[in-house]
Design a protein around this nucleic acid. Sequence first.
DNA 1: GTGAAAGCGCTAACAG
DNA 2: CTGTTAGCGCTTTCAC
Lengths: 363, 363
Amino acid sequence: MSTAPTVYDVAERSGVSIATVSRVYRNPDSVRAETRERVLTAARELGYVPSGNARGLASRSTGVLGLCFPDYGDPDAEATEAEDEDAATLYSDQIIRGMERAARRHGYALLIAASLKGGPESLVAKVAGRVDGFAVLARTVPTQELEVISRRQPVVMLAGPRENDQLDHLDHIEVANFDGQHELTRHLIEDHGLRRLAYIGSVEESPDVEARFRGHLAACRARGVDVGDEPDLRVALMTQAEGERAVDALLAGGGEPPEALVFANDQMAVGALHALQQRGLRVPEDMVVTGFDGIPLSRLVRPALTTVRQPMLRMGEEAVELLVKRLSGARDAEPVSLMLPVTVVRRGSCGCGEKQETEPGAR
Amino acid sequence: MSTAPTVYDVAERSGVSIATVSRVYRNPDSVRAETRERVLTAARELGYVPSGNARGLASRSTGVLGLCFPDYGDPDAEATEAEDEDAATLYSDQIIRGMERAARRHGYALLIAASLKGGPESLVAKVAGRVDGFAVLARTVPTQELEVISRRQPVVMLAGPRENDQLDHLDHIEVANFDGQHELTRHLIEDHGLRRLAYIGSVEESPDVEARFRGHLAACRARGVDVGDEPDLRVALMTQAEGERAVDALLAGGGEPPEALVFANDQMAVGALHALQQRGLRVPEDMVVTGFDGIPLSRLVRPALTTVRQPMLRMGEEAVELLVKRLSGARDAEPVSLMLPVTVVRRGSCGCGEKQETEPGAR
DNA sequence: GTGAAAGCGCTAACAG
DNA sequence: CTGTTAGCGCTTTCAC
């Protein structure tokens, strides 16, 4: 593999100038058909492929959009190609797919990178330097670094609430966590007449998870249902295993057991379903269970899980739309903030037989 | 957003030369600590982000690996955010995840793009021009184009058999389709004593799917089981819906019904499970069903599906390893061809109660 | 340890 | 329609 051929080589071989070679690729119609063919032939013979870098440099644009997401779990932990895979199939994969799809529609490719740590040269910087604009999953990147970068190119922040500090000039997309949980809890209280609800959250300080809990709180309080300021239980990881453990913890103590277990995500809820089954408790007759996220698994378990579906795919698409909009003119427009509506999916685990969907008031 | 600051701006502001600014980013230790700080400070104040393009141009490398995959389904068909999503979650998503993970380990980012059609400037060319090397899912890209590109940079071909023609210098990773199906069919015949097997394939000319059928054939013939030269049925799409239809087609005709339905993928098999259930037929008592792929759904359906699990995640990882190896020296080494072993997963749908796994002879 | 200068391969006016 | 000419922003010897 010698040195790759350049426009000069192609130009020389086809007897035209480099400008013409360039035109053939950028705007074929602006070159006479015959000339074009000569150039293309020469290029083929030489094995010429235009350098994206040189192009980007000269034209100040890359035709690539980016996505930075957190490094879920360490890459060396060879996950058992079965169990955990489903779990991870959530967030980032869906967003990636949504972005890829939308990007393609607009003629962009997608550059993805999970966070790495490094010297002055961090992940974002690397991505930022190679794309026209990018999306960041909340809390993936140091605020200050993002601030600097976002001064130079469009960035959209995904999930999480709008950052309080200096990032308020970024476009931003979040999901109606509060509304979703609020509606779900309301449903349990009003439609199913439940009063003793146990909420299982996470110790992790995720704004999204917190918003869900606040939705739960609000729904309870508005209806005089007894509820503390804190989740009844906070787990470390929000996994199925933790969900199973949660059941033990909540049913172990004396006193009257709850009528419903309201989980902050589907994974835990699924784990709970297992644990409950093993204890010989029926869902929903003996105990109602609900989740949050709407992962594929949620509708496959028995009973199917009542949950709140997050539109992650759509989030990815919207992110691209926002970026594309900025890139085509509206660079200095006011920052946009989208709140994507969620869907409450009522299924067997709360006692609703047929699947029903509700979309709580999204703004 | 004015013009982005460059090394010159940073150099001027910090009172050093552009060379020093460059060094601070490429090799921090080669610059005196004090100087380095001055530069970094200036950079921060200015909002400087190194241009990946300029870097790539100057250093002839991008730090990015690529993946081209086919455009499954049209992007405008807003899939019902539930049904079809699971299906698509297969192939490309898993590969993407595997590649991303491995790429990250090696300090690379990943550029992904689904096929688009376009002028002389096709998808691959775009990707190729922006990465140091890339993987292509078989049959995503015109052979000739690939041939040209692969003369200039490492390319690894994923799935599909090694292309016969001029692409035999590419590294190549495939999955043991033949072995996997062979072992599965053998299992049905020898361990379950079945003799009347119906194979459901695809009209599409996929080499992978063909290899599976050949594995089936070989297993049958070696044991004197009656089987034709062609699948008993070829469907158009390999979807759940087609799987349901297949059941109708195969059970409609007079004559003795088959004892087992051997599907070329899991999707169809799952559809068949539904259809069978609706007809009041029990699986596996009345009819054995098997799939191929090992999608998450396969272990969630009831009865759980006996299938052959493909290591797509690993394929992504191996692809990156191959690329990295080429990029770090072994550019002219002999082309490598990997055959990844598959795993036969015995579950309820063939009559095996407990889950058992077998890895047929992979080379 | 730091500076000067020469490109990397391409696009983009501007002439012809 | 095609050629000429400047850069685009950074890395990289080679001196100092």
